[in-house]
Computed example of a mutant assay.
Amino acid sequence: MGSDTGLVDRWRSLLSSYNVVASQLERELQDAHGLTMSEYETLDRLIGVDCEKRRMQELAADMYLSQSALSRTVARLEKGGLVQRTLCEDDRRGVYVNPTEAGVRRHAEASKTHRAVLAQHLQGQPARV
């Protein structure tokens, strides 16, 4: 039972660390760039691949969001002019999503904030935006 206690303690420590970093990311991304952490992560995954568009199903498989949560996130990004959705010509059930020029610019700006928060918490460096 003693080793189980150690595992549980490590798990709780990991959760605490995640919550601290995620809360700060959420605050700073929202305040500086008008993005939630999920919106930033969606843009980051779209822009981080070498193709002009991705199927929603592929994007959902790469992320921690459910298909419906991703769909709501993409809808907010689309409303803000940061991404656009198009139907797949071969399979009408498939939906592609790609960043707009405004989305690429917002992502570039927000990446600095994102990296500064990560550096502060994961490398012990002070956050500089």
Score class of each variant (00 low, 15 high):
L87T: 15
A110F: 02
V74W: 03
R54Q: 11
L118D: 00
C51T: 14
V129L: 10
D9F: 11
T113C: 02
V104P: 02
A22Y: 09
L15M: 11
T100E: 00
S13E: 12
G2E: 12
R54P: 02
K112D: 06
G94Q: 10
E101D: 11
L70S: 00
Q123K: 15
V74Q: 03
A116E: 00
L82V: 03
L77N: 04
L14Q: 14
P126K: 12
D50E: 01
T42I: 01
A108S: 09
G103I: 02
S13D: 11
L82S: 05
E109R: 13
R106P: 01
R55C: 04
Q84F: 08
E89V: 15
H33G: 01
D90E: 15
R92A: 14
Y18M: 00
L118R: 07
M1D: 13
A119F: 07
A60G: 08
K79E: 08
R128S: 09
G2L: 09
L65G: 04
G94C: 14
L118E: 05
Q24A: 07
T86K: 13
S68L: 08
L43N: 01
T113K: 07
Y96W: 04
G81A: 01
V20T: 15
P99Y: 03
H33W: 04
L25R: 04
R72G: 10
S23L: 08
K112Y: 03
L14D: 12
V129Y: 13
S66E: 07
E78L: 06
Q67G: 11
L7A: 12
A75W: 07
V20R: 14
Q67S: 14
L59I: 04
G48C: 00
S111G: 03
S17T: 15
T86M: 12
D90K: 14
S66L: 06
R72Q: 12
T73P: 01
A102W: 06
Q30A: 14
A102E: 10
E58R: 14
T73K: 05
L118Q: 03
K79T: 10
D90G: 14
R55I: 01
S71A: 11
L46C: 02
T5Q: 09
N19E: 15
R106F: 04
L7R: 15
M37N: 12
T86S: 15
Q84N: 12
R115Q: 09
H107Q: 01
Y18C: 03
R93S: 12
A127R: 06
L70F: 06
H121T: 02
V104Y: 01
G81T: 01
